[in-house]
Design a protein around this nucleic acid. Structure first.
Lengths: 191, 191
DNA sequence: ACCTGAACACCGTTCAAGT
DNA sequence: ACCTGAACACCGTTCAAGT
């Protein structure tokens, strides 16, 4: 929590890198383009992060931390866990709204084989945070047996991530919405 | 259908490239490594395919053609559409069994922004083939209203693809199986 | 027809040198 | 502390030259 003044060089690098990684993945995260985006030279990136792997780990870490905060805010705002659950897909929809971008962790899950260990860890943390949040709200809403809450939470996470992936592959947000409707009709998501 | 003698150079390039792309995506498809894998030099690849884009398009095309054949065989083998539907996830499970690889089209859907137009087309064809097969079997099995068969087909495809992605992100096939169980329990997949 | 070495402009990364 | 130009080994790709 020290030295995170808004707009610091490191901050702006992480923000720009996040946007880039959500569109092009870890492999497509280009240090030269990133530097240009931030307004410095490629070599200068390495003053802030020891390597591309370190930068990506920082990006993925802040990504799940921010997501956790958004989900907490959503739960507080909704009060009713059932309403929170209904609104869960919104978080994934927002990425698509932002230039057809996708969840950083989904993209990087695909890139699993090429991910440095430190990045893998943070990518999985994102899934963990989402599943834990879903599980908690499923329990509170008493939609499924308490013992099956975690299983169902995983299923919802995987299905929503898959829907985002399919919608991105067609650059079609309406498809994402249709898929959420189908999940509700089928009984996977609460109606 | 002419000149496709098994084991021809072009064939072996496509096969090797497919395996590579299922693990590393379009961006991670490396011409030099691919050439070495096939036993020729990088420059020689360009004798068979005009560009990486052309190669990837051929790869993606053969990928959905092969998938279509596998699905047709599955339907013929099962006879009962309900059984076919139950076995649908097997096709995605097989990729995970093969060194935690994933569906080429899912990986490339993530890489949407960086995909040449000719590749995008073939990637979408894969989804189309899968959705059409699911829709047909859903109709025949009379599991959902005929008018909602297509919608449900999309939902199943997206959910299974998402499950594969999540399982790959943890290199955990058992998770894929658990997710399929959850989908069945929730009512998305036929029990 | 099929293959190749050498070259091109590009990548991540390093490092010595600047302020 | 922060930045940079120049260099390194690597990429996709081209092309003239080989058999």
């Amino acid at each position: 929590m020290k030295n995170q003044a808004a707009g610091s060089s490191s901050d702006r690098i992480v923000v720009a890198a996040t946007r880039m990684a959500q569109a092009h993945g870890y492999g497509g995260l280009n240090i030269r383009d990133l530097a240009q985006d931030v307004g410095i030279k490629a070599a200068s990136i390495y003053h802030h992060f020891a390597s591309k792997a370190d930068l990506a780990a920082a990006v993925a870490k802040r990504y799940w931390e921010d997501s956790a905060a958004v989900l907490e805010a959503l739960a507080t705002e909704s009060a009713d866990p059932l309403v929170s659950l209904r609104r869960y897909p919104e978080t994934f929809r927002k990425s698509l709204e932002s230039d057809n971008r996708m969840c950083l962790s989904s993209f990087m899950a695909a890139e699993y084989d090429d991910l440095p260990e430190g990045v893998k860890k943070e990518v999985q943390a994102f899934a963990d945070v989402n599943v834990a949040w879903l599980e908690k709200n499923l329990r509170e809403a008493k939609i499924v047996d308490a013992q099956r809450a975690r299983q169902r939470a995983c299923a919802i996470y995987a299905a929503v991530a898959g829907a985002q992936l399919m919608a991105r592959g067609r650059a079609d947000i309406a498809l994402f919405d249709t898929l959420m409707d189908s999940y509700r009709q089928a009984g996977l998501l609460p109606g």
